[in-house]
């Protein structure tokens, strides 16, 4: 027994050099080379094969408005206190506590700052009023180191003015696409050029607790719920199936069991499909269980 022990001890370095340890498989994926070759031939061929196969879908039979309200069932989740690590005199005057307010519950349990938008609406179906090219200016202000609009939705090309009503400088950083200083009391213009499939975070690098969200869409088919949880998206194409996406800051896509217009439903990946009746308002009242936010 002992003999073997010493043998093992002394042969260990040897085994190290001669032996072979398994490579971490998780870092690499084995792909089928035949499948790769096949796909490569397909990609290298000229012209796009799939285009011709595509069938012309029937257009909308009219336009309709989707309106409704998001509400919370149960007591709101506890608020998260923010760490005001800079400029406390301006950002937390009088040493007051500042909360993240990411789950803003209004009257009657209305949930604010929920984003709902129609995704992938065929460009030809878009109603004139929702076409890109809106020129009315959106004001995006900040005061006491809080973005006054927590979730802002704009269309591509729509001008947005970023205001700074604080006596300190801020900067606005929109994920990976924009990052500019806004001197105290000044404003800078911002124009988004790229559509987003979910709201992107906006922040201030100087005051890192400051957050807000920006949704950029080509068409106008989006809404952000108001303080009482209500929203309205007018002039949606009716008679065709539309995919809606619903987003909330803490939940990302809203998914799980909830109540829609009084009946229980389950949403997956924060989306649901719906076909609207022409020239008729469609009600969408959603009640989210409080447990969802925990």
């Amino acid at each position: 027994m002992l003999k073997r022990f010493w043998m093992i001890c002394t042969l260990l370095p040897l085994a190290f050099f001669a032996g072979c340890s398994g490579s971490p498989e998780a870092d690499f994926v084995q792909v089928n080379s035949a499948a790769v070759e096949e796909l490569r031939t397909k990609l290298a061929s000229s012209g796009s094969g799939t285009e011709t196969d595509q069938q012309e879908e029937a257009g909308p039979s009219g336009y309709a408005t989707l309106k409704g309200r998001f509400a919370l069932d149960g007591s709101p989740p506890p608020q998260i206190k923010l760490d005001i690590s800079k400029d406390p005199a301006i950002c937390a005057p009088g040493g007051k506590d500042v909360f993240a307010n990411d789950v803003a519950v209004g009257p009657n349990g209305g949930l604010a700052n929920i984003v709902i938008f129609a995704n992938g609406v065929n460009e030809d179906w878009v109603h004139d009023s929702a076409k890109p090219g809106r020129t009315d200016e959106v004001i995006f202000d900040q005061k006491e180191c809080v973005f006054l609009t927590h979730v802002v939705g704009i269309q591509t090309g729509q001008p947005m003015t970023v205001l700074n009503s604080d006596p300190v400088a801020h900067n606005l950083k929109v994920s990976t696409t924009f990052n500019q200083t806004i001197p105290e009391g000044k404003s800078v213009p911002f124009v988004a050029s790229k559509e987003l499939n979910s709201p992107e975070k906006m922040s201030c690098s100087i005051h890192p607790w400051m957050t807000a969200y920006l949704l950029v869409r080509n068409d106008g088919y989006f809404a952000v719920t108001a303080e009482d949880g209500s929203f309205e998206i007018p002039n949606l194409p009716a008679g065709v199936e539309l995919e809606f996406r619903v987003w909330h800051e803490r939940l990302n896509g809203i998914k799980g069991d909830l109540q829609v217009n009084g009946s229980a439903e389950t949403w997956k990946k924060g989306r649901f499909e719906m076909t609207l009746e022409p020239s008729q308002d469609q009600e969408l009242n959603v009640v989210l269980p409080a447990a969802m936010f925990n």
């Binding site: 050099f17 001669a18 032996g19 072979c20 340890s21 490579s23 971490p24 870092d27 690499f28």
Partner: peptide, 10 residues
């Protein structure tokens, strides 16, 4: 040769 693969797989 021989030991390279197990030391630097990637």
């Amino acid at each position: 040769p021989i030991i390279g693969k197990m030391l630097f797989p990637g």
